[in-house]
């Protein structure tokens, strides 16, 4: 067990290094091919467009390490955004509305977790159901209307920069550090791996697997809540079609970062590289004037390819 996890550690470091190298080459190539692309300030500015997805990818990493999946994150983001907008419109102070939004996100995650653990259903089915349910509630509550006209201070979360850094990117970096500590330095992190590696064994080892799963999905919901807050502030409007297809981008980031889709292994550093590579690939393409429709195809291909490479790679290394 010990020797194995050691070699796994070495593998992870290697993998992250490879990904970092790929990222650097990618930026270099794009910069050479697309005039005007290489501009530190512009590249930092681009973080604005993926910080929300990045935040959720951190939570999704934990979810996937436990062997689960959460397809409802895009829909939940819409529900969070609509909650913030419409409770504000209904007269709630905006700070309270924002907290209500984050709260709804957390509750949404808890709902997923409770359903999965109580009925012992596969997360895939539950979150496919809430994928429709959450967005359905968002549409029904908002009647497909948008709310906007937030006070100026609300632009803080999504439109402010600290020096050259958009605030939400610094926020993402902070959470990367927190999640790295939690996952690799805390008992909870070990439980997460244990559940994903072998749930039955984990239960026999005295880990309350249901609590771990519940915590992981709730945490993911909380991150969706934060991301929804940032999104609403960035777009300065709340509407039910927010985050369409977001789940795919997020899952692609995580599996590209080397997290095994069947659970048991994965790292935050890897996910971070997955976030950067996928986001800057999209950024470069759009910057170069490639039609956004290609984005759908690329993400789909990367998702499948990422998992495929992981699976083959692991097969070999075994």
């Amino acid at each position: 067990m010990n020797a194995r996890s050691l070699s796994m550690d070495r593998f992870r470091v290697n993998r992250s290094m490879v990904l970092a190298l790929i990222f650097i080459i990618q930026i270099a190539v794009t910069s050479l091919l697309v005039p005007g692309y290489f501009d530190i300030r512009g590249l930092l500015d681009a973080t604005r467009s993926f910080s929300e997805a990045g935040l959720i990818a951190l939570g999704m990493t934990l979810v996937i390490i436990t062997g689960g999946i959460d397809l409802s994150v895009g829909a939940l983001l819409a529900l969070v955004s609509v909650t913030i907008g419409f409770s504000y419109q209904a007269g709630l102070p905006l700070w309270a509305a924002s907290m209500a939004g984050v709260g709804v996100g957390t509750l949404g995650g808890l709902f997923n977790g409770a359903f999965i653990t109580y009925f012992r259903l596969h997360p895939l089915v539950v979150t496919l159901g809430t994928f429709a349910l959450f967005r359905g509630i968002a549409y029904a509550v908002s009647d497909a209307n948008a709310v906007s006209g937030f006070p100026d201070w609300f632009s803080l979360f999504g439109q402010t920069t600290l020096g050259w850094f958009p605030l939400q990117f610094l926020f993402l970096c902070l959470f990367v550090v927190i999640f790295w500590v939690v996952l690799s330095r805390c008992a909870f992190g070990r439980y997460v791996y244990a559940v994903g590696h072998n749930e039955v064994a984990a239960r026999f080892a005295g880990i309350s697997t249901n609590s771990v799963l519940l915590a992981v999905y709730t945490l993911n919901g909380f991150l969706v809540g934060l991301a929804g807050l940032i999104y609403t502030s960035r777009i300065a409007s709340a509407r039910g079609n927010a985050g369409l297809g977001l789940e795919l981008t997020v899952i692609a980031m995580v599996v590209l970062g080397g997290t095994k889709i069947t659970g048991g292994s994965g790292t935050i550093v890897g996910t971070m590289m997955g976030i950067l590579i996928l986001s800057y690939l999209q950024d470069g393409l759009t910057f170069a004037g490639v039609r956004a429709d290609w984005g759908l195809i690329f993400i789909g291909v990367f998702l499948i390819l990422g998992v495929f490479v992981n699976q083959v790679f692991r097969e070999r290394s075994r």
Partner: peptide
Amino acid sequence: NVATQSDIIDKFVRRRVTAIAVSANDPTA
């Protein structure tokens, strides 16, 4: 999607285009 429209505007800004003409999905977003 309004968020994508907003991203594309940002990218045009980084490109320093001369003008941007948009058919908006949302009047305020």
